[in-house]
Design a protein around this nucleic acid. Structure first.
Lengths: 363, 363
DNA sequence: GCAGGCATGGGATACGGTTTCGGAACCCGG
DNA sequence: CCGGGTTCCGAAACCGTATCCCATGCCTGC
């Protein structure tokens, strides 16, 4: 019955269809479309007409099999609804599109199994790079897992990029795009200390999360520099979410009252903290000051607007993509020992309205 | 010099490498890996060992060329940082991953040119479906553009899905996943009216945006039902962003004061409005009530927490993916006239703390 | 007027898999 | 010991495109 190509075929048109219909060879159609070979004006016109008539587009899979093909970058993220991550993704995607690259996206949901499955899936897709976003849990096994990913991707001609995570140890073929996490926390804590605050509630985040560790360490350094003790009871770990901010402050007001400021690990945590203070009848910043971290849009939309640390998320995304694009241009051979494999971007404090000196100092 | 396959090859391993190294045929390796054909235990073991040794993964492009391949869904979005869109994307991506599908993502930035380019790019990729997210600008040309996309994708064996946009007119091969936008606005406005508000500032959004049009219409219907005039001067159009909310309220306080409530087109607009009222020394909700629309996380994080309309964004994403997955299972032939091509999900008001009766009624 | 060069188009092959088809080995009962 | 039916596996034909290599036609220079 059905020959190889029936009339009125439901499938998509192939380059052969175009060729036969235009009365030329397959090679010519390919050349007209890719435009990297001299073709007569007459041929081009004839082919293009048929291409328009058939609404033909080349098959990307076939093209990439045959050697050509658009590079693709994969973005792997914990939770796509996080504001910070969205901005990194925007940076990556924007820079990718600018060069005609494509971007795939996958969410891991903090599950190592899914992370592995996704990395393999991306390897199958032959992506130019896999970008892993967000802080990592610093278990022993972590470094090994990442190193394995890095080598595995490298062997397949791809490349691993870590964004917002600490770099891998040893000679591992991976690129890290980082920001001065600890420095930002140092500056932010200093801001509170220089305003006169001495008892500060610190909500760094999950204790095993590298991001939280850095922010806590930066704060500790600032306290040391000011010769102020950071009392362990005033450090409360927990998730990076609104609920934790709320709950932690509510408990602290009951268990360890007397703090005059809250140093939150995240703007969202700060929002929760602010709400809890208000629910307890305390005013921000008159009674208690609050600072956040990340400078997501929310921080400017709270009342009062939040003093926080700006992290160049979108920029990090762009830089990450540029790094892999550059690598790929210099060729895969000149790659060892390049100094471009750990990029650090700066952070800075954004002063808004959520900090005042403690009331004891204001008489 | 270099034969087809040099030792210590830098490229990725092929199925032929695995086959020769395991001493079996290429076909056998394929069968072991895809698992859709009976294979002896001995063969399976031998092949799998080599697969692990070589860290081999199949080439997705080759596989999809040959007929197999993982289905892919493309998500096209205006602005990846919008909270509502992020939730839809989460729904789509989650449901896709659940079935082993892949998700591509692209951002259009409200540019029709880029939208066209992306749709074509996705057609090249042979995606199972293209999901277009977000309200559309209702220019004349719009229906034609979308119809063209729909037919073009359909002819290529793909499918267009519109999420959060009104359905296309006529017999167009597209699926629409929508929510009861106008109904939500009706309920929200009724909530304000039944609280006693009569002079309400309405900030529906951009006048040409279908979403904004529906929200305004719903509000108008509620006003009519209550026999209250909605004065044109109190309707102010503008972008769906914080700045517009702020600016519109600031101007309204000067030009058309006396309103006792703000009906914002979006939670983010409501946040801006709230800030502007507060900057003018007005209290929310004691002096002026505010309601939003969308129920994004922000709405629960504002002070006071925002009364708003819940839109099932994530659910819409899941439903959208389910719709295309179902279509593809019943086969491409039974597709005309299916009633599954316009799905509408419900909305409902979420009452929080941003509404009180107007002060005139409270003595 | 003819040889050589250049500009173009076509045929064949490669890319890395999946799948169909057919053959070999093995088991069974007669 | 042999025929017929199962099981498994291998050879080969694609999937749709890019590109290498060669053939052709025309122009140019002598």
């Amino acid at each position: 019955m059905s020959q190889r190509k029936a009339a009125g075929d439901a499938g998509r048109a192939t380059i052969r269809d175009v060729a036969s219909r235009a009365g030329v060879s397959v090679a010519s159609v390919s050349r007209v479309l890719s435009g990297n070979y001299p073709v007569s004006e007459d041929l081009r016109r004839r082919v293009m007409k048929v291409v328009r008539d058939l609404d033909y587009v080349t098959n990307a899979h076939a093209r990439s099999l045959a050697g050509g093909g658009t590079p693709t970058v994969a973005i792997l993220i914990n939770n796509i609804t996080g504001a910070a991550f969205a901005h990194v993704a925007k940076g990556v995607e924007g820079a990718a599109t600018l060069r005609g690259w494509l971007s795939l996206v996958g969410t891991t949901g903090d599950d190592p199994e899914r992370e592995l499955a996704l990395v393999n899936l991306m390897r199958q897709q032959g992506v130019a790079a896999v970008v892993l976003l967000g802080g990592a849990y610093d278990y022993d096994e972590y470094q090994l897992r990442m190193a394995r990913f890095a080598r595995s991707l490298d062997a397949a001609g791809s490349h691993l990029v870590l964004v917002g995570r600490p770099p891998l140890e040893g000679d591992v073929p991976a690129t890290t795009v980082d920001y001065d996490n600890e420095g930002g926390a140092y500056a932010m804590a200093s801001h509170l200390l220089s305003a006169g605050h001495r008892r500060v509630l610190v909500l760094p985040g999950h204790a095993e999360l590298t991001t939280a560790q850095g922010r806590l360490k930066g704060a500790q350094r600032a306290f040391e520099a000011y010769g102020v003790e950071l009392h362990p009871d005033l450090v409360r770990h927990g998730q990076y979410d609104y609920e934790h901010g709320y709950a932690a402050v509510a408990r602290a007001l009951y268990e360890t009252p007397g703090f005059t400021a809250v140093l939150a690990g995240t703007d969202v945590v700060a929002a929760g903290a602010m709400q809890a203070l208000r629910a307890a009848g305390l005013r921000v910043p008159e009674d208690v000051s609050i600072v956040g971290y990340d400078d997501i849009p929310l921080s400017a939309q709270l009342t009062p607007q939040l003093t926080t640390v700006h992290v160049p998320y979108e920029e990090m995304g762009r830089v990450a993509l540029r790094a892999v694009a550059d690598r790929r241009e210099v060729g895969p051979d000149r790659r060892r020992g390049a100094d471009g494999d750990h990029l650090v971007l700066g952070t800075h404090v954004v002063v808004r309205n959520s900090v005042k000196p403690p009331s004891t100092l204001r008489g």
